[in-house]
């Protein structure tokens, strides 16, 4: 896991520090991905300033389709079904939380339960595209089904986060422990958000840590990764990234590929963790559905059993 920390040398660009073109792309990411903040994937990819705009132009037509949304719904439902077999955390009852705090924790969990599968699928799509670049001038077939509505869902919780290096020593220690245990390059948005309620984060982490090494947990993570790779290679349209465009990365090309592969490995555990934490509050059936569903007339992808 330490390897991954070393791979991620580029410091992700905070959303509030984005300027001009990057600020515009970050805005579009939130609109297209229907999310209230810009996650680590994009903030890390943004550290490749020449390639990132090209990458985004290529991602956008795929990410705003119903097929993409339903592929992510499929991953989310799969995660909920599989993670239910893992030991329960029961962290919620161990902390004296107020009514408003509970409401906000649930809303924050919904946010990540919605976005994490989308990040896994798009990372897999980008990974696949970089491994199989298209010829210059290749035009991907836009899927023939409808586009999803743009915009952050009205009731989505803002992606509010505690600073990566908080003043509180216990919180700093917990962040370090999470990072070390999960092999994270930086502390992920999910945990930084849960740190808004530090006592709750401590209770969650204390119970989650032993589950992470459970053989079934590792098996589920692998299943999710493979399912996303399957979506990328067989279900979703290819990104139009050509060899010429990849050359823009220069000597950083290997680094970019490693970073992207890293995301496809990190995200399945994050998806499972959010499901496990959410199971304290919600039923598996609830978690199988999208927290921010889009009404479609028919189903494109049937969830596998």
């Amino acid at each position: 896991m330490l390897f991954f920390s070393l791979v991620m040398k580029n410091y992700p660009i905070p959303e509030e520090e984005a300027e001009r073109e990057l600020d515009g792309i970050f805005h579009e990411i939130k609109q297209v991905f229907r999310v209230s903040g810009v996650n680590l994937n994009f903030r890390t990819w943004a550290t490749y300033p020449k390639f990132f705009p090209v990458l985004w132009v290529s991602i956008r037509p795929v990410a705003e389709t119903r097929l993409f949304e339903e592929s992510c719904n499929h991953i989310r439902a799969l995660a909920a079904r599989l993670a239910e077999k893992l030991p329960r955390l029961d962290a919620a009852t161990s902390v004296g939380l107020g009514d408003s705090q509970i409401f906000q924790i649930q809303a924050a969990l919904d946010l990540y339960h919605y976005i994490n599968p989308k990040l896994l699928v798009i990372s897999s799509v980008v990974e696949y595209a970089c491994q199989h670049p298209t010829m210059s001038g290749f035009q991907s077939q836009r899927p023939d089904h409808e586009l999803i509505p743009r915009g952050i869902p009205l009731r989505m919780y803002p992606m509010e986060m505690i600073d990566e290096t908080p003043d509180d020593a216990t919180l700093r220690r917990t962040f370090r422990d999470i990072q070390r245990t999960l092999g994270l390059p930086g502390i992920n948005s999910d945990y930084r958000t849960l740190a808004l309620w530090p006592e709750y984060l401590y209770a969650v982490w204390h119970r989650l840590k032993p589950v992470i090494t459970h053989p079934l947990y590792l098996e589920i993570a692998l299943t999710l990764r493979e399912a996303a790779q399957q979506m990328a290679s067989h279900v979703l349209p290819r990104l139009t990234i050509s060899e010429d465009q990849l050359r823009v990365l220069g000597r950083k090309r290997t680094h970019f590929l490693e970073t992207t592969a890293h995301f496809t490995q990190l995200l399945p555990p994050l998806i499972i963790n959010i499901v496990l934490i959410s199971l304290d509050w919600r039923s598996r059936q609830d978690l199988e559905g999208s927290p921010f569903p889009i009404e479609f007339s028919s189903t494109v992808l049937e969830p596998s059993t």
């Binding site: 107020g98 705090q101 009205l154």
Partner: peptide, 18 residues
């Protein structure tokens, strides 16, 4: 004080109050 807050949905928004 935050722990005492309860929550109410007002249209599409939420309001915390004691």
């Amino acid at each position: 004080f935050q722990r005492l807050q309860i929550v109410s949905r007002v249209n599409a928004r939420f309001v915390s109050y004691v």
